[in-house]
Design a protein around this nucleic acid. Structure first.
Lengths: 147, 147
DNA sequence: TACACTAATTATAACGATTATAATGTAAGA
DNA sequence: TCTTACATTATAATCGTTATAATTAGTGTA
């Protein structure tokens, strides 16, 4: 399955005239296999064994390339750095306020909200973004034990 | 109405043992009357006529104080700096991808989503966040004229 | 395969938002 | 009024991200 994603992603890039470099290949591969939602620095550090000379700028540059190709989404939460998410099918995120863990959560699209928003505000609505915040099981039990 | 908000806010602060300084008063007042969703720098620049010696740090410090008192919400979108929103009643935001304008949008709370998320992920869910993105009327007509 | 052209990478500096620090000022109760 | 703790100020530091310029390396073509 993730092999398919990688192939598809490479196809998409090729078709938009973007060169497939080893770094790009590795970044994509890492993001697809990653179950977390890594920051640019996470990616950089994960790949510095394989690419000792790779620059952070390369990571940022390519994340931007992937974003504009629609392969990757940028997630900006309260914390200092952005997180990046390989786009598979649409899903939302549930985020732990204690440890920052992000869990994917599937839910039928909220088309109704978009329609109403468009109607009320006069905007031409393109998409929406929804996140759910709380405490994950580990952190819940941990804080319960601490008492 | 906004007078009531200000009074309530000051009450809330007092009750948590936070001193009411002229700077805090002014920041709160500005945020309540502001229809936009200002950045820390917006606030700083708006008040530098009245408080020529005020430091940016004061703005940030107090926004943090207000946040922890539940008076203010921090909004982090893709762009570089956070925006701050005086909390009145719950609403969502519709954001223009062209000019960055933010319009408030009321919609009955999506309790169902929270419940489902809690059930599926095992999280103890506290709240959620929803934003709708698109193009506002002005920007739509502007780009239509440009063609 | 070799060449040439252009894009990608690297190293580094710059930038900008936010936070930390230390010194000074000030509100409020004894 | 005096004292104490909290706020503010000015400034430096931090950190994520972006810009720049030089070097390197894909890719289409001969």
């Amino acid at each position: 399955m993730s092999e398919v994603h990688l192939k598809d992603a490479l196809e998409t890039l090729k078709s938009t005239g973007v060169r497939i470099t080893p770094q790009r290949h590795a970044i994509l591969e890492f993001m697809i296999h990653s179950t977390t939602h890594p920051t640019a620095d996470d990616i950089y550090r994960a790949l510095e064994k394989t690419f000792p000379n790779m620059s952070v700028a390369t990571v940022y540059n390519n994340l931007r390339v992937f974003k504009s190709a629609g392969l990757v989404k940028e997630l900006t939460y309260g914390d200092s750095s952005s997180r990046f998410d390989f786009v598979t099918n649409d899903h939302y995120h549930v985020i732990c306020n204690d440890c920052g863990k992000i869990v994917d959560f599937h839910y039928p699209g909220l088309d109704e909200v978009e329609h109403l928003a468009s109607h009320v505000t006069g905007f031409q609505v393109d998409y929406h973004r929804l996140e759910i915040y709380g405490t994950c099981q580990q952190c819940s039990t941990k804080s319960a034990q601490a008492q």
